[in-house]
Amino acid sequence: MWIDRIVELIPRERLVAVKNVSLAEGHLHDHFAAGGGRGALPIMPASLIIEGMAQAAGILVGHAEGFRENVILAKVSLAELDADAGPGDALRYTAVLRQFDGAGASTEGTVERRLPQGGWEPIGRIDLMFSHVGAERAGPGAPAGNFVFGESFKTLLRLSGF
């Protein structure tokens, strides 16, 4: 999972989740490794920050219908990040449900980084669209049941008290 805890969930409205960035995460050793005469620069890849928002927003969308629908990330409408996040940083994702219908949903999101002295500073915006993919649209060979919200999502929800 690319979020560590859900700290707020207002059904069909908004979800807030936090992610702690740690040097124990293997990808930070490669992104970016030392080379070319400069030292290592461990920063969280922007694509994984987008994935974190997709998980936060996806849970908000899935929760709206009791996780009966497969909720698939279908479009990154906007992704703007003004600052990096590295080891020791905490990120806070706030996803707001903008629109929702049988076919899918759109969300607007803000990404914040914890300040050393406390409090949070905004570092970006990520707006997403999700498709609802039921059995009839998933096509032949798709797994039965809900293939999006598996055990790791359930564990996250349970540990977050939801």
Binding site: A74, K75, S77, R98, Q99, A103, G104, S106, M129, S131
Partner: peptide
Amino acid sequence: SIDFLDVVFRLEQ
């Protein structure tokens, strides 16, 4: 295909 849903949502707004 997903853009058609995006257009629908934006027209509604």
